[in-house]
Design a protein around this nucleic acid. Structure first.
Lengths: 196, 196
DNA sequence: TCAAAAGTGTTTATAATACACCCATGG
DNA sequence: CCATGGGTGTATTATAAACACTTTTGA
């Protein structure tokens, strides 16, 4: 029957901090754990990284590594202030295919889902959110349009209070939060949706 | 180190025939093959299904099955006339989570990629293509709009000749083909694209 | 009172959709 | 010449993006 191969689970955990997209490393490697017999993939992932500190987790892909090991990778997203042990390294400096796949997945989902919730703190200004999107997307984003798109889609909602301006002045910024902390598709059909 | 678990590869092969979305079964089950030691996932998939007859293949997801087996599923798409051994069953009648996942993946990609090429014959009329989209999407699609969207995006191109009308008359239909037979993203950014 | 930062109003661009109408064929 | 299916022209709608301008603050 089936031959035996060893199977590992790998976590690609991303966050944006100070305008930089970062990936979590443990001992210079992506966190991973061998899959035990009769163990679920999620259970193995939980041994590799502190899943409780992640705001969103989804499976990325399964690849065959050298040496006959199969690895299933998960994408994890964390807020800037999430407490996770390990070293955060600029994603652009880690040239591992799985990290590129994670970035690509994130980039895509930022445009048609509410997944930004997983990278943002509980409340934030539009400027702060813009900085997160810019880092994750890798290109400039207009704060004006970001606000309009996400509010129109019902992804963001205003919350009481304002952020006081810095030393250089400026109007105090309104605070927002994501309405949902679960992944939702907000723009399901780019085209060929059902007739209205 | 890593404990051993058995690993299998499963193929979820879909096609549309006579207005119906169908899934390929072998002996009443989704085709699968155990992964041999040091074998690539694709090699195992090739032992499960005739990959050469598929117009498109992509990895779906990896799940833990009962009994400690890990299964990596692939989505395969075939033209109506592709020669594949096995039994084709209406996808709606096969209530297996992997089939639902495959359908969902296909539905999404039909709207923002050219993946329709993998379900269509080499050349076709817009009506025929519409029938394929209707079956795969599960909702009505306007032939007019389908034509316009796919031509504007440069996905379809006209080919010489016309299809003669049936016994009931009607204008002869123009023939089209997909410009590319490889997956291409045609509508990358629903929103938050790079500034122009 | 000026510079900085945030926010709003309005216009423009683009894409998808809807709908009316014309075209080409078989019977 | 009419029913049928195919196709085009044009209007409508939705959404995103661009841009000008106003608001609110610190210094």
């Amino acid at each position: 029957m089936a031959d035996s191969t060893s199977h590992a689970v790998v976590g690609v955990v991303l966050r944006v901090r100070e305008g930089r997209l970062e990936v979590l490393l443990l001992d210079g490697e992506l966190p991973s754990a061998p899959l035990a017999r009769d163990e679920s993939l999620e259970a193995a992932l939980a041994r590799a990284v502190d899943v409780g500190a992640l705001a969103h987790v989804e499976q990325l892909e399964t690849v065959a590594l050298a040496g006959g090991t199969i690895a299933t990778a998960y994408l994890g997203l964390a807020a800037p202030d999430a407490g996770l042990r390990g070293e955060w390294r600029a994603a652009s400096r880690v040239s591992v295919p799985l990290v590129a796949a994670a970035q690509a997945r994130l980039r895509g989902k930022l445009s048609y889902t509410n997944v930004g919730f997983a990278l943002a703190p509980a409340t934030f200004t539009i400027s702060e959110l813009r900085e997160i999107y810019v880092a994750a997307l890798g290109h400039d984003v207009s704060a004006t349009n970001l606000q309009r798109v996400l509010v129109r889609r019902g992804v963001l909602e205003r919350v009481d209070g304002r952020r006081a301006p810095g030393r250089t002045g400026g109007r105090p910024a309104a605070l927002f939060r994501f309405r949902s902390a679960r992944l939702e598709v907000t723009d399901e059909f780019a085209a060929l949706g059902p007739p209205r």
